[in-house]
Each structure stands twice: as structure tokens, then as C-alpha cells.
Amino acid sequence: MSNTYLDWAEENLALNGLSDPRHALLRADAMAWAQDQRQDPEQTFDLVVCDPPSFSTSKKMQGTFNVQRDHVRMLEGIRELLNPGGILYFSTNFLGFELKDTAVRGYESVEELTPGSIPEDFQRKEIHRCWRMVAPRAGGR
């Protein structure tokens, strides 16, 4: 829900030659947005990058968001928005985070990318955790 992070994302897409009108950068409560998108069966994605805050509270959202508490519902909702074979990259900076088995139920494959995603020269090895999740290739939502 941060304009600053959206600006950084837009700048990084441009710097990497990836600017494209097909890329949507949205400022929204991710949980509410995913729920709204599920109402439109035409709105599906080949790729979703999800890097939620560890905790968030804002006047622009209902209640609070806690990645440990809410990730199961969030990842289930995103899975329903992926095209068959679509990919979700999920990352969190919450150091005590534990990915629940129920959060990845229904994904075709789940691979933790954490070890390969931390720069060698970074002294603190527990800066984040991240995964690559693939939606089932057959069937759809």
C-alpha cells in the first residue's frame, strides 16, 4: 500500500528493460484485492510477485494484516488467480515465519529459494525467506 515501493518497482522495471503496459502496479490492500479479483473469472495471471509486510495496519484497510496469521488465506486466494502453470513468487522479511502446509495445498510444486537468494557478502543470513510456487497445469481455477 506504499506509493514509495510502487515507485521503486516502476523504476526497477524500467532500469531492467521490463516496462510494459501489461504489467500492473497496484496500490491496494492485498487481501481485499485478491478477494475482489476472484469475483472476475477473466482476471487471471501468469505471474504474481507477493512480498507482503510482516505486519500492517492502515486506515485504507479493514483490520490488520499479520503475515504469519494471514498467509494461508492470502496464498490460497492468489492460487485461485493464477492461470494453469502460473507462478507465484512469495517472500517475507518476517524472520520467525513458518510456511504452513495448508498454505501451499493445491499448488503443483513449491520450492524454497531462500538460500540462493541471499547475497554472499551479506553477513546476516536470515534476512528473508522466499518461495516459488506453481499452480496446477491442468484444470484451472
Rank of each mutant, 00 (worst) to 15 (best):
T92Q: 00
P52N: 04
E108I: 09
M31E: 06
C50I: 11
S117E: 04
Q68C: 01
G17V: 10
V104F: 12
A9D: 01
P41F: 09
A14M: 08
Q39I: 12
F122T: 06
E112K: 10
G96I: 01
A34E: 03
P115E: 13
A135T: 11
V67W: 07
K59R: 14
S2R: 01
L82T: 08
E112R: 10
P53W: 01
L25S: 06
D36Q: 14
G96W: 05
I87T: 15
T64E: 15
R137V: 08
L82C: 05
K100M: 02
S58T: 08
L15M: 15
P21F: 10
E120N: 12
N66D: 12
M31P: 03
E42M: 05
F122M: 11
E42S: 07
L18R: 14
D121S: 04
P119A: 08
Q39S: 15
Q62S: 14
Q43A: 13
H128A: 10
S19K: 04
G86A: 09
G139H: 06
D46F: 02
L88N: 03
Q62N: 10
R141V: 13
T4P: 12
S2T: 00
L13F: 05
L75N: 02
L6C: 04
L6Y: 03
I87G: 03
S91I: 08
T44C: 04
D29Y: 08
E126C: 05
M61G: 08
R69H: 13
S58I: 10
N93P: 01
